[in-house]
């Protein structure tokens, strides 16, 4: 027994790379490289190079105090929270209703809710801009939020339908049988059970809104620019590592959110529906 364990662990220590393993490693490096380059550039002392010539955390600290970026981040945060909240709120009834539709209809509707992902976002932004100017005559923060609600909705629709697909309708019937009204059933049974999908959808929507450039560039009022626009405008005139530092912070924030989503999808397994 001990011998076999030793032999197999010996093998595991020096695995011969398989084709699949190599392919996966290359893909991983390909995806992660830009993040490393940006983070590396942020550690430069003077101009942006990669690899950095002289390491310093100066710009990383400066990025957190530079008023213009902090201001942009705040605007981005507010827009993203409001847009993600509304798109999640709208996605909820959509996902719950899709579950009750006949499968063929549900499939078509699910695809149409993916629509905003299929249209090139710059074209979509232009269209939205003309509609908004026609309807309201101005752009302001709430119009930007409307735009973001539209582009972010596919995510909560997707994550919530993914969870509701596995939700046994008998759980809701059971609540009805002991006297729970449909609303009470939703609050006490449905919502707690689909919560991981709802939160994951909200966070995906948040990240999408936070990082959005093409919608924002059309619908942003001059005096209230979200962070991606701030970064863009800064780059038009200057080229200092602080911009990489700002981006690095943004990436770190997004990464934390992705980790939370992953944790939630993991939590889903622990709700004990499969036994």
């Amino acid at each position: 027994m001990t011998a076999t364990t030793a032999v197999s662990s010996g093998k595991a220590r020096w695995p011969v790379p398989t084709g699949l393993g190599i392919a996966a490693s290359c893909a991983f490096a390909f995806v992660v490289a830009p993040l490393i380059v940006v983070a590396g550039a942020a550690l430069n002392a003077e101009a942006m190079f990669f690899p950095p010539r002289q390491l310093t955390l100066r710009w990383m600290m400066a990025a957190l105090t530079e008023g213009s970026f902090v201001n942009g981040a705040l605007i981005s945060f507010v827009v993203a929270v409001v847009a993600a909240a509304f798109s999640t709120l709208f996605a909820l009834p959509v996902a719950l209703q899709l579950r009750k539709a006949p499968p063929a209809v549900a499939r078509i509707l699910t695809l149409s809710f993916m629509g905003p992902l299929l249209v090139p976002s710059i074209i979509f932004a232009l269209a939205l801009y003309s509609v908004m100017i026609y309807a309201f005559g101005v752009t302001n923060l709430s119009i930007l939020m409307i735009g973001h609600v539209i582009i972010t909705m596919p995510y909560p629709v997707r994550t919530i339908t993914a969870v509701t697909e596995h939700l046994d309708p008998a759980l809701e019937d059971a609540a009805g049988s002991v006297g729970a009204s449909p609303w009470r059933t939703f609050v006490s049974v449905t919502l707690p059970l689909i919560k991981p999908g709802v939160i994951a959808g909200f966070l995906f929507a948040f990240i999408t809104s936070w990082n959005d450039f093409s919608i924002s560039v059309f619908l942003t009022p001059r005096e209230l620019q979200p962070l991606p626009i701030k970064i863009y405008e800064y780059l038009l005139y200057q080229y200092r590592p602080i911009i990489a530092a700002v981006s690095t912070w943004s990436v770190i924030g997004s990464a934390i959110i992705v980790l939370i989503i992953d944790r939630l999808v993991g939590l889903n397994v622990f709700t004990g529906r499969r036994s």
């Binding site: 046994d168 008998a170 759980l171 019937d173 059971a174 609540a175 049988s177 059970l193």
Partner: peptide
Amino acid sequence: NIGVVFQNYALWPH
């Protein structure tokens, strides 16, 4: 006001 026992029990997991 009818008690129902479901085939797969339908116990709320949370």
